[in-house]
Structures are given as C-alpha cells and as structure tokens.
Amino acid sequence: MQPENGREMTTTDPIQATGSTSDAAPERSAPIDHSVPGAGFVTTSLTTARRSILQFFRTPQLLMMGTIQGALFLFMFRYVFGGAIRSGGALSYVDFLVPGFLVTVILWSGMGAAAGVAEDSSSGVYDRLRSLPIPRVAVMVGRSLADITLVAWGMLVTGALGFLLGFRTHGRISSVLLGFVLMLIAGYAFTWVFITIGLISGNAQAAQGMSMLVVPFSFISSANVPIKSMPGWMQPFAANQPISVIINAVRSLMQGGTHVVGIGHTTAYWVVLSLVWSAGITLVFSALTTLRFSRSK
C-alpha cells in the first residue's frame, strides 16, 4: 500500500545537494524510507476543481442565491426599467438587455468565487494544499476551472430565464455560438481577477467588500442602457472598459451585427478587442495569483 516512488530520491544525498551545511553529520543522509510521489499538474487541477464545484452544487444557499438574484435583476430590468429605456439600435429592449446581462454574470458570479478563495485561504484548506507534494500553481488553475464552470452554469440559467422573458437571437446560429464561446473566454480571464481578490483580501467578508468593485463595472457599461444615454463625462469610461467591449462583441454576434445594435465599428473589431482584453487580464492576474499563492511567506 505504501508508495515506493521515493526510491529515486534516495539516490540524491540531500546533504550534498545543500552543500552549505559543512557540519552536517553523516547520519543525516539516512535514506528516505518512504516518501509519497505527489499528484501531477492535471490531476491536481481537476481534483481541486471538483472540490470547488461540488461545494457550489451541494450548498443550496449558494446555488439558490445566485439563481434567484439573477432572475430578480433580469425581471426588474425587463419590466420595471425596460419601458423607460430606448435601446438605441433596431432591437427591442429584451433583445438588447439579455446579451449584456449574460456578460455581467461573469462579474456577479465572480463575487462568490472571491469569497470562496478567501474562505479557503483563511480556513487552512490552502495551508494543507500548500503542504502537499503537488504543483502549487495547479491548485489555482483548478480554482479557475471550477469558477469558469460556475460562470457557464450561471449563463445557462440566465439565458434560459431570458428566453422565458422573451429574449430571441437574430444573428446566425454560428455567430450566436461564437458569442457564447467569447463569453467563456472572457469569463475565464476574469476568474483570475477574482481569485486574486480572494487571495489578497484575507477573509470572506473583506473579499465580498472588495468585490463591490463589480458594481461600477457592471452598471457603468453598455449592459443595461446604451452608453449614449449617459452623461458625457461618464461615457469614456463606460465605452472603453472591458465589460462594455465584451458586451458589444457578444451583442453584435448574437443579434446580427453592430448596425443592428447601434454601435460603431464592425463585429470583428469588438471580438478582437475582447480577446486582447481577455489575454491581458489573464496574463496579469494569473501571474499575480501565482506569485501570491506559490511563494512561501
């Protein structure tokens, strides 16, 4: 039952390897009689991802909260504010709203992810994982895989709700599918932002607090209203922040082009810009996460 893979290690004398401790007594180099091999990168990622996914689907509060909150906001925007908002392009408000709303799922579900990471960080879960013979980065990759799964779940639920409230796509089916793929790519980029927030915040409450940053990104965007309806000083941020860029791309893909949506440039322009943003965010925040989680303090 004992893993015997420690053998190759015993051939390397750890004392020789360190070199510096000249006063090391020879008996220190006693062979390591048993040591565990440790899991590889893929096993570690998938195993830890599974844990976070199970945690979500087996905790009714988490599962219901997200769903109900999403449904509530969608309902209110569709019926309470919807009548007063002119969507700008050739779209009905519900067809304008739902693609934007789907993209903001990335942000809202990220709040939960940040809290979960902070919780694992303060509860000793990450201490255990960091003490195991596994690549530490893989634990974070596992977390991001779990989070993007939850984002996909949130989009599925929101999409279904939107459909019930009258949302229909007008683009080609291939474009609509591309829209979903783009949302997942962007969603994956943002999981790293929320993992970083979770790691640096220290505890779940602080993580929730820091995650309130999602509110301006979600609302000062093209998600719920056309940016042209906002005051001039707000428009530069609203039009250029990444969430708006991604929404413009997804909305154009789903509804048949930028002219239908009532924005400039081509669909391809917004798609490429979204991919650039996603790549940049992934690069920066996965690096921050890795630095933070892998180093020994």
């Binding site: 750890p14 004392i15 360190t18 401790t21 390591i32 040591s35 440790g38 003490s131 195991l132």
Partner: peptide, 18 residues
C-alpha cells in the same frame, strides 16, 4: 532539515515526506 532534507533549498522534497 526534515528527514535530512534541507527545507530551504528543497522544500518540494520535504512535502513528499510530511
């Protein structure tokens, strides 16, 4: 040193033992 392994230079080997 943990099980003869220098924890400063070979932490990943220490993790196989603990």
């Amino acid at each position: 040193h943990v099980a003869g392994i220098d924890a400063a230079t070979h932490p990943e080997q220490v993790r196989r033992v603990i």
